[in-house]
Amino acid sequence: MPKKSRSRLWFLVHSWLAMPIWCFMLIVCVTGTLAVVSQELVWLAKPEVRASKTEAGQQRMGYDQIVSRLHSAQPDAVISAIRRPGEDHFALLVDVSYPDTSVARLYVNPYTGAIQGRSSSFDFRQFTRALHGWWLVPFSNGYSWGWYLVSLLGLPMLASLVTGLVVYKRFWKGFLTPRLRFDQGARIFWGTFTA
């Protein structure tokens, strides 16, 4: 097979790999982007998620202090978990259960120990991560075929990467010496801008 026709074959394989899966890929990428910033979006939308200091230089309370404040505010609550987010401006998530077998997830200010509100069992953060991870396909028999579908998306992406490297030889030269052609029309300018 001549070299020219081999290059064309690789190019056709590379370009057609994306055709059947572009919509699926777009949804996975958009939901992945939302999942990355979902905690911050929840922080912006819900004031009870925010942890604010009442005075300058105030330190976070220890777990024992948080537990004692929660027991004084809700004496019948049994604490099962306390989650501390990575950033200081987020409230603690405290899972509690009550004698009537109900459960709740509370937002607790780590500086004052005050209960700021309740979290729903399935919030926006969990929704975006579930939509990205397994397309909200329900689990049956311990697995979700949506999770496998999202995972299998890696195979055409890998094939597209390999064929792209074969088709676009020495692609790194464009990164090291970018060249924008302003004088040859809009199509060529935007082609060199995105390349």
Rank of each mutant, 00 (worst) to 15 (best):
V49E: 09
E55L: 01
A56I: 06
A56V: 07
Q58K: 04
M61Q: 08
M61T: 05
G62A: 15
G62N: 15
G62Y: 05
Y63H: 15
Y63G: 12
D64R: 14
I66D: 01
I66C: 00
S68H: 14
S68Q: 15
R69K: 15
R69P: 05
L70M: 08
L70G: 08
L70C: 03
H71F: 06
S72C: 05
A73W: 04
P75N: 05
D76K: 15
D76C: 04
S80L: 11
S80D: 14
S80F: 09
I82T: 07
I82C: 05
R84S: 13
R84N: 10
P85G: 02
E87F: 05
H89N: 10
F90Q: 01
F90R: 01
F90I: 00
A91Y: 01
L93H: 11
V94Q: 02
V96R: 03
Y98N: 01
Y98L: 10
T101K: 14
T101P: 03
V103W: 09
R105D: 07
R105P: 02
Y107R: 12
Y107E: 10
Y107W: 08
Y107C: 08
V108Y: 05
V108D: 04
N109S: 06
P110Q: 02
P110I: 00
P110M: 03
Y111T: 04
T112R: 04
G113D: 02
G113N: 01
I115W: 04
I115F: 04
R118M: 11
S119D: 11
S119T: 00
S121G: 12
F122G: 10
F122I: 06
F122H: 11
Q126I: 06
Q126N: 13
Q126L: 13
Q126T: 15
T128D: 05
T128K: 04
H132P: 09
H132E: 10
W134F: 13
W135L: 15
W135I: 12
L136A: 09
L136E: 07
L136S: 03
V137F: 10
V137D: 13
G142S: 09
G142P: 06
W145C: 08
W145T: 15
W145P: 13
G146V: 03
L149E: 07
L149H: 04
V150M: 07
S151K: 14
S151V: 13
L152Y: 13
L155S: 08
L155P: 06
P156G: 04
P156V: 07
M157D: 02
M157T: 12
L158N: 05
A159W: 14
A159G: 06
S160N: 07
S160M: 15
